[in-house]
Design a protein around this nucleic acid. Structure first.
Lengths: 190, 190
DNA sequence: ACAGATGGTATCGAGTCGATACAAATGGAG
DNA sequence: CTCCATTTGTATCGACTCGATACCATCTGT
């Protein structure tokens, strides 16, 4: 039996992924954290586009994230606008350039290729990793930041008509495919 | 189909792992990079205990790594000694404290628990991740840093007698279970 | 109306990291 | 043997991250 099963290859993959993101982000003058924040903003839903949500997602502090976002704003990648209902809150959205860059940076070409080259079943591996992720998030007490339609608050009211059971607001199909900070995995057996 | 299969959960697990290592390392006054270097040195073989090897392992630069190692030395966790054959080379080895700390930090308790809680088959997942890792290393042109006995240079000469086909030196059983910078995965079908 | 909680920003100091320059040792080519 | 390119490691600098602290504005509950 190899030492530290799962953990060791996971950490090595982490290192490689980070090195790759670092390199590709640097080509656009972005630090790794900034890339992560940008990619998050490109895939989060309307409940999750605030500095506070980014802070929880990155597992960082609000002060640090504030600086990160300031850079992204200065670079013309994100726009800040005050929330209408709560004027303490800032809403973040990507500019056209920001969206384009996020799309480019969110899929590391070399890893996509590696995934194809290796003989592993991507769908199977994806499922296992997500199961492990849910367990890890539960163990560490972190929010899950899952996709809306996999949340226990998600309600199906019609063929293409959904609703969030937490905010009671209607959701479009597009909404349901995005990351939500309020996401809570369905109660699982075990 | 969820967006970015495999990659998305992998990145989330990365973030959580890093946040966890950060927190536990900080309790001992160590930065994440320092923890990674320490854990590497705790599990590498005698061909791989130099600053250069650490540099390649971390995917960093020798200047940066030199600083990292200086800190670890100052903290009394690693010892430096000149190589006898090549006096440019520095050999790194852990002190008793360093070894103890590496052991403590290399197994994140919360993730081990999460791995148990989740219903995934650890051995199966481990195999898939290692396959993906090999493919990723090949794609990015990085060294594999695999365990000695899985290397194509590894030769079995007796029941418990091994030899490295690259250096032609004999290897103990303990040697064969450690990480080697010269590691090269066996030629694989496909 | 007021107190506490919440969301965000500003600033500071310790530390990372890439780049550059540099020193020491090795290994060939002549 | 001498010269020179290469390799290994260190020192230093500037841009940047990150945690901590302090601070302000706004919301919420009593």
């Amino acid at each position: 039996m190899s030492s530290r099963p799962v953990l060791q290859p996971l950490e090595r993959l982490c290192s490689l992924l980070r090195a790759d993101v670092r390199q590709r982000g640097l080509a656009h003058g972005l630090q790794p954290v900034q890339v992560e924040a940008l990619c998050y903003l490109a895939s989060c839903n309307r409940y999750s586009d605030t500095p506070q949500a980014v802070t929880e997602y990155l597992g960082s502090t609000k002060g640090t994230v504030s600086q990160t976002l300031k850079v992204l704003e200065r670079e013309g990648l994100v726009l800040k606008s005050p929330d209408r209902e709560d004027r303490r809150v800032v809403r973040l959205r990507l500019t056209a350039r920001g969206r384009a860059l996020a799309g480019e940076l969110s899929t590391p070409p070399l890893f996509v290729q590696a995934l194809g080259d290796s003989q592993v079943d991507a769908e199977l591996l994806d499922g296992e990793l997500r199961a492990l992720l849910v367990a890890a998030q539960r163990a560490t007490g972190n929010r899950s930041f899952g996709v809306c339609h996999s949340c226990r608050f998600f309600r199906r009211e019609g063929k293409r008509i959904f609703r969030c059971g937490l905010t009671e607001e209607p959701l479009s199909v597009a909404d349901s495919e995005r990351i939500c900070r309020e996401h809570d995995a369905a109660t699982q057996a075990g």
